[in-house]
Design a protein around this nucleic acid. Sequence first.
DNA 1: TAGAGATTAGTTTTT
DNA 2: CTAATCTCTA
Length: 670
Amino acid sequence: MSFPLNPSQREAVRHVGSPLLVLAGAGSGKTRVITAKIAHLVEKGASPASIAAITFTNKAAKEMAERSRDLLAKQGAGAGAGGARGPAISTFHALGLAIVRAEAAELGLRAGFSVLDPGDLEPIVAELVATADRARARAAQWQVSRWKNALVSPAAALAAAASADELAAARAYAQYADTLAAYQAVDFDDLIALPVALFERDAEARARWQRRYSHVLVDEYQDTNPAQYRLFRHLVGEATPFTVVGDDDQAIYGWRGATLDNLAQLPRDYPDLKVIKLEQNYRSTVRILRSANAVIAKNPKLYEKKLWSELGLGDTLRVAPAADEEGEAEMVVGRLCAHRFEKRTRHADYAILYRGNHQARAFETVLRARGVPYEISGGQSMFDRTEIRDIVAYLRVIANEDDDPAFVRAATTPRRGVGAATLARLSEIGAARKTSLFGAAFEPEFAAAVPQRQREAIDEFCALVNRLRHRAPKEPAARLLNELVAAIGYEDWLVATLDKRDAAERARSVADFVGWLGRKGETDGRNLLELTQMVALVTRLDDRDAETADAVRLSTLHAAKGLEFPHVFMVGVEEGILPHREAVDAGNVDEERRLMYVGITRAQESLQLSYCRTRKRAGEKVDVAPSRFIGELAQEDVRYADAPLAPDDAAREKASGAARLKSLKASLAR
DNA sequence: TAGAGATTAGTTTTT
DNA sequence: CTAATCTCTA
């Protein structure tokens, strides 16, 4: 994309006099405008470090940082060179973390505070709502998060609670803050909510942060939630100019508390707001765009906007049915391979996009069987991996001795003879002495309460933690990490407890993680304690090899936002999946339609949508209907593939009969 | 306390 | 039909 900027883009880049909202349609060169604007501001004399650009994902932040670094370097004049600090480009949460870290003392936190992810929080909430039911615990956790994102206080939540479940969640919410405070821990939502609270009670802190930035840019503005909008408003204050870029048609994070109200509210909060629309699409063919426009036309509009393209009419869209998920995977991968062979394209030119992570499985199986290289983006975070959580637990106790959940995990992994009984003793001592589990091990009654074997194991564990804690500020993180993994005998334990393949895989993932974190420490000049906090916000290691590899991308629609591919396969385009059933029940079809729109607009040259006629659910085949959104495409641009042949139906009948028989037997057994 | 087998629930997106 | 959690025995 080395075309010159078009007139609207240029206007957006050069406008500096007042707050600016750029309504950037899909593929309209939005990232380019943001990076060009950063370069423009620097050219006009702003210091790069005084420019803040805020994104939602680490991936977007990284891409923006790279592109603006290149641009500033090209601009020359030493702007990006010689150790001068670049623009502050980060996610909302990373920015929040930086603020909480800088203002920790004001917020009643010690420097080593822990950042807990939802997985750490689930058992805490489960205890607070007194349930063993995971689903209930998650629902409560979810509710608490929504309140925080909407800046609803525990008292307000308690007052407004409408159902028994909500009341229980509100009660948990009230105690939740105390529990986290005892652990010296914050959750993801706190990274936004705590800075907001600080700025609202402390004008001086607010002024300090406002002075820091001469211009603030926000990417994907339509995905901000009320807490984030408030934080943004405090950062820009009355005087700091800003540029926010967004597209109401691509708002797909309502479930995370994002609200289009923030887009509607902006002109009211900033009467001199300038609005610029980017409507020329540089990505897709006319046929693809026509369908995108047709689908999104069914939604209510905040700002009228119509994408157009000069890239030619292009191929028709294809809609193809499959018998079931295996059939769909076979069909899609088969077609992909044939297409690739015929057009002499690269694997990396193709993407398979789906609504939910679990849908990837069938495609992985077929791709692997055929030896087609693929990369899964998004998907489960590397912190859902036990081995990573194990290592991170150690890091958290090292950084923060009050982090009881981390203590429990680290002290019992690898097994060192410490179990529930010992932990219960420690917990009693801790409660009596008002100290953490770690602290309890140093209380006088510890010796009497715990048998010698366990005592020695705990002592040894605590000594290791203390040793590393003292060395952490001074020594390179990489060395300490390697020492830690060796000292706890983690790999030996893996080999001893798992079969060969699993042990090797986990050992490799630990090695990857430790290597990555060590390098990160070097490049960012951060010690082990600082790295520990940022690690919770990272969902995947940035891996250059994976990004540049010639491989088919598998991705959720959410994770695909911002990306583009010459050839896209949207799969599982079915009622119940896209739109998702829960969303339909909750009356959120508009957001599902935007998700459909996001999927369509990822495609540059060709697009195939497919759906299954039946799908396995809890072992049994269930009939499913094609998505209503298929009927909303521009029908003159769509070709419908033939129905599958009769033998498939026969096979389906047989399979479904067998499944029914089996479930009948199962119910008789009960 | 630790590992092997039984059991039972699973239906969405992510910092 | 999985996959993760739970229970039971050594």
